[in-house]
C-alpha cells in the first residue's frame, strides 16, 4: 500500500492561491513597497556617506570606546565599493533588513505569547520545528507560486527561515525571568501589560536581542538561495559565479556577504551586551 501526502499539499496550495488572490497580492505589494523604500533610502546617499554612517553606527554601538569594529567597517565597506559591488550589496541589505523586521514583528509577539502561556508554547513549538527543519528549498516553491518570481518570494522565504530563533529566544528570555520578580509584580498589583513591559520584557531583553542577531544572520544565509528565484543582490553575483564557473566573481560576491554578515553580527551583538551590562551594573 502506498500513500502520498504530496498531492494533497499541492491541492491545498492551489486552492489557497485561487481562493485568496487578493490576500497574497496585498502581502506581495506591501512587501515590495517595503523593500523598495529601503533600497531607495540606502541608495540615496552616495557610497562614501553611507560608509561614514555605517562606521559611526558601529562605533556608537560599541559605546565609543572600542574602535576596532569601526575600523573594520571602513575597511570592509570600502573594499565592497572598490569591488564595484556597492549597489547590489545595498539591495541585499534592503532585503535582509525587510525580512528581519517582518520576522521580528511576527516573531517577538509570538515568542511573548508562548513565553507567557503554557498552551501557547505547546501550539507554537511544533510550528517552529517545522519551519526550522523543513529544507528552505521546499518552501521556496510555494512562495514562488503565491508571489511569482522576484524579491517578494525571496523575502517571504527568508522570513520563514529566519523567524524561529527569534521566537524561541524571546520565549526563553521570558521564562528565564526569576519567578520572584514576576511574583513581586503581581504582589504589588501590576496589570498584565505593566508586568510585561515593566518587568518581563526589560529582563528578557538580552535574550531577545540574541534572537534578533540570530534572525539577521539566518536572513543573510538565505541570500544565495533566494537569488535562485530572482531576488537579485549579492546572491545573484555568487550564483552567476557558480554557473559560469567564474571563481573570482563568486568569491568577491561571497566575500561581500561575509563582510556584511560580520558587520551586522558585531553591531547587534554590541547593542545586546550593552543592555546586559546595564542590568549587571
Amino acid at each position: 500500500m502506498t500513500f502520498h501526502i504530496g498531492p494533497y499539499f499541492e491541492n491545498l496550495i492551489n486552492w489557497l492561491k485561487d481562493s485568496f488572490p487578493g490576500f497574497f497580492d496585498g502581502i506581495g505589494s506591501g512587501l515590495e513597497a517595503f523593500i523598495e523604500s529601503f533600497e531607495f533610502i540606502l541608495g540615496w546617499l552616495p557610497p562614501w556617506a553611507m560608509i561614514v554612517l555605517l562606521t559611526l553606527l558601529a562605533w556608537w554601538a560599541c559605546g565609543w570606546r572600542n574602535w576596532g569594529l569601526a575600523l573594520f567597517s571602513v575597511a570592509g565597506f570600502s573594499l565592497i565599493y572598490l569591488m564595484e559591488l556597492w549597489a547590489i550589496t545595498m539591495q541585499t541589505l534592503a532585503l535582509v533588513l525587510t525580512s528581519t523586521l517582518v520576522a521580528l514583528a511576527i516573531g517577538i509577539p509570538l515568542g511573548i505569547y508562548s513565553g507567557r502561556s503554557a498552551r501557547g508554547e505547546k501550539l507554537v513549538r511544533p510550528v517552529l520545528d517545522f519551519m526550522q527543519t523543513m529544507p528552505a528549498f521546499v518552501y521556496l516553491i510555494p512562495a514562488v507560486l503565491f508571489f511569482s518570481l522576484g524579491k517578494v518570494p525571496g523575502a517571504v522565504a527568508t522570513v520563514i527561515f529566519g523567524m524561529p530563533p527569534c521566537v524561541r529566544l524571546t520565549t526563553l528570555g521570558l521564562r528565564q525571568v526569576p519567578l520572584e520578580a514576576v511574583e513581586a509584580s503581581n504582589a504589588f498589583g501590576c496589570t498584565p501589560w505593566q508586568q510585561l513591559f515593566k518587568v518581563q520584557l526589560p529582563m528578557a531583553l538580552p535574550s531577545i536581542l540574541a534572537g534578533v542577531n540570530q534572525t539577521i544572520m539566518l536572513a543573510l544565509s538565505m541570500v544565495v538561495i533566494s537569488a535562485m528565484i530572482g531576488a537579485g543582490g549579492l546572491g545573484e553575483q555568487v550564483l552567476r559565479g557558480i554557473t559560469q564557473l567564474k571563481i573570482g566573481m563568486g568569491f568577491e560576491g561571497g566575500l561581500a556577504i561575509v563582510i556584511l554578515a560580520m558587520y551586522l553580527d558585531r553591531v547587534t551583538h554590541a547593542l545586546g551586551s550593552h543592555s546586559q551590562q546595564k542590568q549587571q551594573g
Binding site: E180, E183, N186, T191, Q279
Partner: peptide
C-alpha cells in the same frame, strides 16, 4: 489588583528586585 496595591506589600527571600532599574526606581515600583 486594587487590594494588592492598597493593603499588601511583599518582601521576598531572594529579594525579587528588578536588575534593570536602580535603587530608587525599584523602590518607586
Amino acid at each position: 489588583r486594587e487590594l494588592r496595591r492598597r493593603k499588601f506589600a511583599m518582601v521576598f527571600q531572594h529579594f525579587g528586585l528588578l536588575p534593570h532599574r536602580n535603587v530608587i526606581e525599584n523602590v518607586a515600583f
